[in-house]
Write a protein that binds this DNA or RNA. Structure first.
Ligand SMILES: [Mn+2]
Ligand SMILES: [Mn+2]
Ligand SMILES: [Zn+2]
Ligand SMILES: [Zn+2]
Lengths: 126, 126
DNA sequence: TTGCTATTGCAACACAGTTGCATTAAAATT
DNA sequence: AATTTTAATGCAACTGTGTTGCAATAGCAA
């Protein structure tokens, strides 16, 4: 169930995603909004924003949760299925606007896939 | 640093992977070997078996750790890079012997990639 | 304003995974 | 076979991310 009331917590969280181009980890959000929003609230609001298809989430290579803005998703379907890129140098994580083809696999029915690519980002390469 | 002594714990763990075709989660191993090996030891032995390229590990969609046998890997290089498949019906997780092409991405240097596919396995597909 | 109830903060919890340290047991040495 | 060395183990306590229950608070509609 998504957001129904425009609260201070919702605004503060959305503001973080407006000033950020990439993804933000929940850990980072808790640090940034410490003293402003309780961590329980942060988890709960993020969860609702995902239900509303305003944000989407994924896990990094350590199993920690990250969120990023959705683009062109509707409430009942996330359209922006894409890989995520984790920079091994600076730690930045972002969404990659590329499509990766998952081939059919014999006798199996594929529902979804999660792809995490690790390497050096635009700023750290070279 | 890998295994140097052939202990009871090493044998018990390797035996689990011998009687299993797919991957096994650490959680499952701890349950199975309860009263036989301490969970700390399980984590430590698995870690060493991975160093020795006997096992490899990955995270499932909940961020929990799984291990599976390596095939054709050498101590300093894991050759069996492949996606993992998580059955949404029976919970089984296994290695997929297919190659998925990750395209080059402009201005980024790709070091590795992790692919987790979710769906219905051979036994659960209708 | 008032009342309804979604949202929040807090404290306590869940639980996978880690660490420090004393004890045990491989396996090399005598 | 006994001794020595030290890798490996068990245990208890811890870490850190994420969750839950509940009383207090604050959107928002009437
Ligand atoms: Mn994304
Ligand atoms: Mn595998
Ligand atoms: Zn970078
Ligand atoms: Zn299945």
């Amino acid at each position: 169930m998504g957001i129904t009331r425009r609260t201070k917590s919702v605004d503060l969280l959305l503001a973080e995603f407006d000033k950020e181009s990439g993804a933000i980890s929940v850990i980072e959000l808790i640090e940034r909004l410490n003293y402003k929003i309780n961590k329980t609230t942060i988890y709960r609001v993020l969860d609702k924003l995902e239900d509303d298809a305003i944000l989407h989430s994924f896990l990094d290579s350590n199993g920690n949760k990250w969120y990023a803005k959705c683009e062109g998703c509707s409430k009942h379907r996330h359209y922006d299925v894409h890989p995520h890129f984790e920079c091994m140098d600076c730690g930045k994580v972002d969404c990659l606007p590329v499509e990766i083809l998952i081939p059919n696999i014999k006798n199996r029915q594929i529902e979804s896939s999660q792809i995490l690519i690790k390497g050096k980002c635009e700023e750290c390469v070279g």
